[in-house]
Each structure stands twice: as C-alpha cells, then as structure tokens.
Design a protein around this nucleic acid. Structure first.
Lengths: 218, 218
DNA sequence: CGTCATCTTGATTACGCTCAAGCTCCGTGG
DNA sequence: CCACGGAGCTTGAGCGTAATCAAGATGACG
C-alpha cells in the first residue's frame, strides 16, 4: 500500500495544457516523497496520473535485478496509461512530487467527455512515440550517442535550451540508456573534454556546442 | 509512388478477430510483392493497415545507414498507426502479401463506430506493449537472451508452439535485436549445440527444450 | 566537520563487432 | 538432370567498445 496521502488544497495551479482541466477537475491531488512508489510493477492499472510538480520515473526489474528505466515524466506529463490491465513498469517519485490521480472508473463515467478522451489519446500517442524513439536509441546508438541524445533531449525539454538539470542519478540515466554508471560517467567526462558541455556539480550542465551535441544525437 | 494495386476480389476471408469486420467492410484490399514498400519513412500517415496474408516489417534508417527494425506484423495485425502525422518507420512487405488499407478520412467518417474505435485502440495498445517489451529486450538483455527471446516469441506467436518459421532474413533479425548477422548466426548455432533448438534449413526450426528457451528469454 | 552515498577515474576483461573466408541453398540455364 | 552462379548464412581470427572490478574524489547532509 502506498504511503502517499491525498491533498485537499483547494487552490488551482495554472493549467499546463489547454486540455488540462478535465483531469484537474476530476482528479485527486496526491503528494509523494522522493523514492516513494506511485505504483508497483505488475500491480493493477486502475488509475491515470499526471505530474503536477516534481519528476516521476518508470522502471522495470528483471528477475535477476537488471533494471530498465522506461521514461521520466515532468510536470504536465500523463503517465500510468497501460496497454493491458497491469502496470508493466513501476512508477516512482524521482523527487518529492505532487501528482493528479484519476480513477479508471471516474474516467469511464466520463467516456463521452471529448476533452478527456483527447488527453488520453494524446498521452498514448506520446507514450508510443517516446517508446519508439527509445527503441532506436537502445538498438542502434553507441554509448557516446546515447548519452549525447539524452543530454540533448534534457536541454530541449526545458524552456531554456542552453542548459539542463538532471534530477535523476547516474544509475537512473544508465538504466534508461542501457549502459552502466561508469560508462555514463566516462562519456559525460569525454563530452566535457570535447568542450561540448560543461557541468557545474554533477546534476547541472551548460551546453557549449549545441550543434555538436545535436549532431551526436543524430 | 507505390507499385501496389488494389484487388477487387469480392470473396471474404474468414475474419481473424471478432471485431475484424469493420475494417474488412471499409478497407481496400491491396497486394504487395516481396520487398515492396507499403509506406516510406517520414511519409504522411493517412492510412491504417491490416495484414491479410504474408508478413510486413517496419524499419527505420539512420542517416548513416544503420537500421532498426520496429516490428513484424502477421495476418490479423494492424499497423501504420502513428503517434504523429508522419510515419516514423517505413513498412515493407517481407513476403508477398495482401493488406487491407483504410483511409484516415474514411476512418474519421466512422468515428462513432464503436467496433472500429475498439480496433484502433487495441492496435495502439498492442503497439505500445510491444514497443515497451522491445525496449526491455534492447536495453538489458545479452545477445544470447535476445535471440532466445526472439525465437521463443516466434514459436508462441504461431498456434503450434513446438516449432517456428522465420520469414525474415538474419539481417532483419539482427536489426530487430540490435545485433549483427554474425552474432545472430553464431548465437543460433550455440542454441543448437546446447540442444535447445534444431534448425532444418535456416528458416525453420523445432524447439527441443522449451523450458530452457523460455528461461533464457526471462 | 565527519560520514556516507554518489560520482569519477583507472586497469583489466569479455562480449559482440569487423573483416574475411567458406559453405548452403536455391534458382537458372546448359 | 546436373552444373553453375549468386545471395544468404555460417564460421573463424582479431579487435574495440563497454562491462566489470577496484580505488579514489566529490559533495550532500547530519
């Protein structure tokens, strides 16, 4: 059972997308502490979620402990949508975060709500698009290209594309890219030596050569 | 422009799923010769497809020629559904095949058709599920496990699970698994040496040790 | 300021890739 | 019917990239 608790604060945050209100109205706001589980692998998928603040990570474990990170979800992103009726990946709070939770039953009761249907369809589309991109990255890119792609995406995800913040650990990055932490670390060092990026601390970086970073990402 | 031509044969094939009729009725039947392109990478996605006979492969090329195979589609499978409005992967006929083609415009005209909506939703769900499984395979499995997983899935896709047919080349398998043909070939040889599978010719095999194959697939 | 987790760096190993022959199978033509 | 040719598959030798094993360095937090 999750330790998360519902927040009954009445104040509305600014809608993050034009269609955000459907979930805003129907959903329940919950807070999760860093490293807390939102839902577990193989649990029933009877909720839909949207990040309000913080970052969520989905991941899946193999029986021998190998881990694959599915994706990272930022404020505004919908997650928890599953092709089947069980969660194939677990979802964990990467940082302290607030999440809007919507029951599937509520969802079905509003099946005729066009705005809601649109949100779900767009979430599914985005999920599929990212999974396909992930397949490309994992299947055919070198470690160097993987790390460059990852950092490049981080910089373009935020509004300001000259720098990036990494809320996730090196282990998270490694498990997302299908590498080891050592390889991620070494590759980041090489990117710095090549004057393509520059880190201040290990969780924040600036892009020195945007074109080179983009080229390495293919 | 595709060389495929519409077939106006009136005879109906047996529906492959209970909900198959919606596409059967609205779609146009087209034949594609082996290696012919159904649609190209980055083309507009304005059709939805379902395999009637034969096998279809989706793939994507990087600018330097590296190729990633997205998936293989068998009779009954829907493909061509895209998260955006362009095809991220090309689709090619792996064998001579017949495909049902449905225009997006026709599809929108029947947006209220529940059966059709269900087909599309299920296709999207299946697509996402397979992409996620693919991510797991590419990110965290060894060459041995990748090949074993692949062969295991082939055997369970067909009705008779004791054997498998490979309509695709070693290159196709390699590009699906993120390996080279040599590694695929060597791994298959090792699986035979280990008496887990047995090939007759290079496109057909029997499973000798189902448990071992399943275990290697995780 | 000390402690511990996280990250970086180094040395070595190994898995899968590359390059290079052979081999098999199948279609084609003599 | 068999010989030939070529594409696709297999096998081998050597190499390179990323993994593993092992210390250190950094930095967050009490």
């Amino acid at each position: 059972m999750s330790l998360a608790y519902p927040l009954h604060t009445a104040h509305q945050t600014k809608p993050l997308t034009t269609a955000a209100d459907a979930i805003d109205e129907l959903g329940l706001r919950m807070a999760f502490a860093k490293d807390e589980e939102v839902y577990g692998q193989d649990e029933d998928a009877d909720m839909l979620y949207r990040v309000v603040s913080g970052v969520v990570r989905t991941s899946r474990l193999m029986s021998d402990g190998r881990r694959q990170v599915g994706d990272f979800y930022y404020p505004g992103d919908v997650f928890g949508l599953e092709p089947g009726d069980a969660h194939r990946f677990a979802a964990e709070a990467l940082t302290d975060c607030v999440v809007l939770v919507l029951k599937q039953s509520t969802l079905r009761a509003h099946a005729d709500d066009e705005a809601l249907t649109k949100i779900i369809w767009e979430a599914a589309a985005r999920e599929l698009e990212r999974a396909q991109e992930h397949v490309m990255l994992l299947g055919r890119k070198s470690a160097f290209e993987k790390v460059a792609s990852f950092l490049n995406e981080i910089t373009h995800r935020g509004a300001d594309s000259g720098h990036g913040d990494l809320p996730m650990s090196r282990q998270d990055i490694a498990d997302y890219l299908g590498l080891t932490i050592e390889t991620v670390s070494r590759t980041i060092s090489r990117l710095q030596t090549a004057a393509i990026i520059e880190f201040e601390g290990c969780r924040r970086f600036h892009v020195r050569n945007d074109a080179a970073l983009a080229r390495l990402s293919e």
